[in-house]
Nucleic acid binder design. Sequence first.
DNA 1: ACTTAAATTGCAAGCGTTTTATAATCAAAT
DNA 2: ATTTGATTATAAAACGCTTGCAATTTAAGT
Lengths: 341, 341
Amino acid sequence: MNKKPTIRDVAKYAKVSPATVSYVLNGVNKVSEDTKTRVLEAIETLNYYPDFTAVSLSKKKSNIIGIMLPITEDSPAVFKNNLYYNEFVSGVEMVARNHKFDTMITGVSSPEEARLWVKKRNLDGVIFLGKFPQNLFAEMTKLDIPIVLIDTYEEYTSFFQNVKIDDEYGGYLAGKHLIELGHKNIAFVSTSLELSPVDSKRFTGFKKALQQAGVKLKSEFIYEALDISFEKGIQLGEQILTESKPITGIVVVSDILAIGMIKAFQENKKLVPEHYSVVGFDDLSISKYMTPSLTTVRQDIFQKGKSAAELLIHSFEAPDAEQHTIELPVQLVVRGSTRRI
Amino acid sequence: MNKKPTIRDVAKYAKVSPATVSYVLNGVNKVSEDTKTRVLEAIETLNYYPDFTAVSLSKKKSNIIGIMLPITEDSPAVFKNNLYYNEFVSGVEMVARNHKFDTMITGVSSPEEARLWVKKRNLDGVIFLGKFPQNLFAEMTKLDIPIVLIDTYEEYTSFFQNVKIDDEYGGYLAGKHLIELGHKNIAFVSTSLELSPVDSKRFTGFKKALQQAGVKLKSEFIYEALDISFEKGIQLGEQILTESKPITGIVVVSDILAIGMIKAFQENKKLVPEHYSVVGFDDLSISKYMTPSLTTVRQDIFQKGKSAAELLIHSFEAPDAEQHTIELPVQLVVRGSTRRI
DNA sequence: ACTTAAATTGCAAGCGTTTTATAATCAAAT
DNA sequence: ATTTGATTATAAAACGCTTGCAATTTAAGT
């Protein structure tokens, strides 16, 4: 196996200096057409390609985009319970690849760890996906690379790039849908209104829909799951069943929770949508195939990933551009889990 | 923002040479306890941490594990239609992180691209997940790093490390289950018996179960989807409905296909398991929550990822160890989509 | 032909580590 | 005290690239 050629080999072959080769490689407009073609030929025949680690060291840029995901001691796996993170990552990876960037993913459990990771690897930019503690973002302001936050409404939002969806409108759509179907006693299920700004936005929209229609919101119809998982959904469903409040419609901030709840209902012989109309949020790829198929507020998570990567790459090219936030649309998808009453 | 300290800064502070610092960093047993603590102190107070790109360049190792996923022109997203790749990636990332490795993912569309990626980034090892053309593996034999293949039965298997599941036994379990429930007319749905060695193994097991019970296999009960997606499942389901063969049980090599098929049945007023008993394969996290909940052959994909990473890391430490293949167990999970007839 | 300015190219010093070969130090043994 | 042999420490050369600056070539203007 003959050694991988270096820039020097190319230089020698093309009878120029390594610097010149570097210039043509980087498109620095300083080299004559003549020698350029000569260098290109040398590169071709020697099968040369630059060593990224060397480039990284020299340029102090890695051509790597990092995706950070939160992990904790009791949940040390990055995609745990997050059925849809893969779509997001796909989006990032795709646009990154199209721009010659590589994608690195890692779970982080502390702000220091996160900062060190960026520094050690000379990451060009990083995307934060998921819920992180405030102080993580504080720590990140120490970094001088572009950072994009996903679905964040925190204090530090304005320091970074953002991509999110129109959560409030999503909540509004869900509420309005049930109201239009004649529901008056509508429950709202979030993870936590206080801890999750996203949920709180959706709740705001939801309230707006009720208000607009003159439907009263009952505080005892508000539930918090504190967590997203099928199991939590089941628990919540069971809780609602035992309480037997006069609820007819339920808006849930996550398809995963909604699916769990519906399962709980079905196991207890309460049918959806006959007994409860439920509308989820996200429109996971599976939601359409549930029985009943899930009425839900759709967001395009793949697009979210693409937008995040695009924002990042755009920041590389225009480092001094101001902070941007992209807001992706949401859309109500009416299917089988809701009905007119 | 004060500059990130280099090994030289540490050396100066501790009044030793950079080489010495490097030695204590790498645990090379050549430095006295005395100076070692002095260096460690310097590292501590200066908040030093090594720059991985520099280390990579010097050692010609990156401390990065690559995960390669196949992409094509009409499917340029790495996780497209692969609801469970995220679990796998989680497993890899977790053990990688525990061993101080980083994880990089990329979609590859050609063998050269794959080889270049490894070389350019000085990847320490790579994991291939998904279906790749033969010549990809041929190209990879040119590489001198550990490689692990997932679910591969190809010719090149013996050149690399492998992790797979006991596909044949899985197929056997599925077939046996339906037979024990009294089914005689059992269909088998694969992606492609010829193109997918995995499916073909499962089919072998399935046939064995039939044979063992003296049940005849009807060739017109064999279906090929050529692809894995909910939509394909629906198509197949509709096809089976229109054909109206006397099928009562169906073994499907993928939960995704099974879910699609069941949907098609339900939309056409054929109930599962009343009309058809169907058993899937994989046990996706969602399968339990379908209606009916899916009987399926469970495999632990998270564990698969962990095993792959462990195998890789083990190879780093014992580079001359011979080729290993880890075979993970499968397990029948009986739920609501099958019934006795 | 002779300057002068502009366009190309090359030199060499980084980038932050590791590692080989060499030198310095120290303890024990004459 | 000297020699010897370990034991520790250092200098300096990589690793493969980029880039500021200087040197060279080319072109343009008198």
